[in-house]
Write a protein that binds this DNA or RNA. Structure first.
Lengths: 326, 326
DNA sequence: GTGAAAGCGCTAACAA
DNA sequence: TTGTTAGCGCTTTCAC
């Protein structure tokens, strides 16, 4: 790999001139410029980033650390972040932690070393310490989807309100034996559960049953099956995520229960299959793109001004009424 | 940020000793080790990657450049690559090009500068030049899902054979007016089309109609609608991807055509909704995880030995027979 | 408008 | 076992 010295020699100028020319800084005679350009081309010279970074730390890279790259929510979020960042001249590196705190720690450390301009992260519950370290290094960061501590920038879905709205909608249809299947060890599931219970309480109701399970399809199915063999069966179900809903729906289907008559069904997220089943599913759609874009924008602001006070932004999802509730 | 000098001074040793200690190289007395460790902790010292990289180029990062991070196929592939790479002590940065050759060029250049250990890429059709540049820089790379040129490592789905199998299956059911809706400007769609036509020809048939459209749901729907208003309607449809199939299926549904009697339906990919519709969809499932893992493994091999001859690996998908064909 | 030279933080000979 | 030193490739004064 040709270095700046090689170019300087080839062009018959000093390295300083080459450097100035590469960075478009300072004065350069047309003659020198032409010579350097020719040499650069001839040698296929590309400045060494490591050396540049050693001299002037910083980069135009944003790290986006997500907990599950296969989750369509994060897919949509990634895309939104990317699009916004590109517009501002930043590139995005996406890292997948698989909800694994150890991987998360590794990636956080890695991006710290790589001197990224900022990081957007959906932190695991144990993620506070590494993020604080990031702050200490002076690397701007914003959390998305989950908040592990206040005092940092964060962009979240309004889970409580979303659950509240969805639950009220279920009640409005006259369902009274309402069961919920919610994720376990999950920030969003906790919030959604809180909204669910609050809405119930405000209407002097209480949940028939609340199942908390790992957010996998199989678990959603098992939970639903459990619900279906009890003496007092639920007449409506709320699921806290698409994966859980997928399993729960299959169980209902297998039991040949008619929706919405025998049982009402509603969930968070809006998977493709929601409009393929009959009746179609009533859901709270998460504003994933909006969250991503907002987070990217917030990060840019913090990069520009590290002293601004942290903001917490809540973005509302929308209730999409289809036919799975009476 | 504390530097190695600060640590050396604090510990009362030379920078060389600190360096050796950080890298676990060479001999260090217990005493020195303890002093350095204390100083490191006290100062919160972290080696500067840029400086390290300047001295010893290279990293343990793999770049995974995908054309559409929202596509579940790539989601699954990412995860597989990640899992394999982590096992070998590598981290993965995922970049999303959105099928945009300009973004692709930028990312390829970026990861070249960042001196990643290797790159796995699903290249756009214009992606040859930047990849060759990568090779010149000596950065190992392997292509997945698409091949833009031979002479490089590549791991691909066996699209031709997959389409061949699927088409034969359609023929076996006695369908004879078979139409195909295939992606446009797409390597995989081209291959699938070739397999489709070959299978037809081998059975002395020919396609009733071949639609080539951008791979979006709306386009799939429009193509299907077009097919449905012709005089001679197809009695079976093959779609080259999930997104196209989604739209096509909606059009069939809207037209109240019964599957598989009035019209047979089959497609590539295995979206969640494939088992939510009745009858469930017969599909060719792509071996996304397998492709990802194989690509990661191949990349490791090339990193270890840059002179090995390039391999081209074709991985078969599996025909999943459900009820959408007679 | 240009060049000489110092130095970013680190590592690897080599000498002690 | 440890320290001294040179230098990785680049940018940036500062003097010419």
């Amino acid at each position: 790999m040709a270095s700046i010295k090689d170019v300087a020699r080839e062009a018959g100028v000093s390295t300083a001139t080459v450097s100035r020319m590469m960075a478009n800084k300072g004065y350069i005679s047309e003659e020198a410029r032409a010579k350097v350009e020719a040499a650069v081309k001839k040698l296929g010279y590309r400045p060494n980033r490591a050396a540049q970074q050693l001299r002037n730390p910083g980069s135009h890279i944003i790290a986006l650390i997500v907990s599950d790259i296969q989750n369509p929510f994060f897919g949509e979020l990634c895309r939104a972040v990317e699009t916004f960042a590109q517009k501002r001249g930043f590139c995005v590196f996406v890292c997948n932690t698989d909800e694994n705190p150890e991987k998360e720690r590794r990636y956080l450390e890695l991006v710290g070393q790589e001197q990224v301009a900022g990081v957007i992260i959906s932190p695991s519950s144990q993620g506070l310490a590494p993020i604080q370290k990031l702050q200490q290094q002076g690397i701007p960061s914003v959390m998305v989807d989950r908040q592990v501590s206040s005092g940092f920038d964060a962009v979240l879905g309004d889970n409580i309100r979303g659950a509240h709205i969805l639950t009220r909608r279920v009640l409005k249809s006259g369902y009274r034996r309402i069961a919920g299947i919610f994720g376990k060890n999950s920030f969003t599931a906790d919030e959604r559960l809180a909204g669910f219970e609050a809405a119930l309480e405000e209407n002097d109701q209480q949940a028939l049953s609340i199942q908390r399970v790992p957010a996998f399809e199989a678990e959603g199915r098992k939970a639903m099956e459990r619900l279906l063999i009890t003496n007092e069966k639920p007449d409506a179900i709320i699921c806290s995520s698409a994966l859980i809903a997928t399993g729960a729906y299959r169980a209902i289907h297998a039991a040949k229960l008619s929706i919405p008559e025998a049982i009402g069904f509603a969930c968070f997220d809006d998977p493709t299959w929601a409009t393929f089943v009959k009746p179609e599913l009533t859901v709270i759609q998460q504003p994933a793109s909006m969250i991503g874009e907002t987070a990217a924008e917030l990060l840019m602001k913090r990069i520009a001004d590290k002293t601004r006070p942290p903001s917490l932004i809540r973005l509302e999802g929308s209730l999409i009424e289809r036919g799975s509730l009476r």
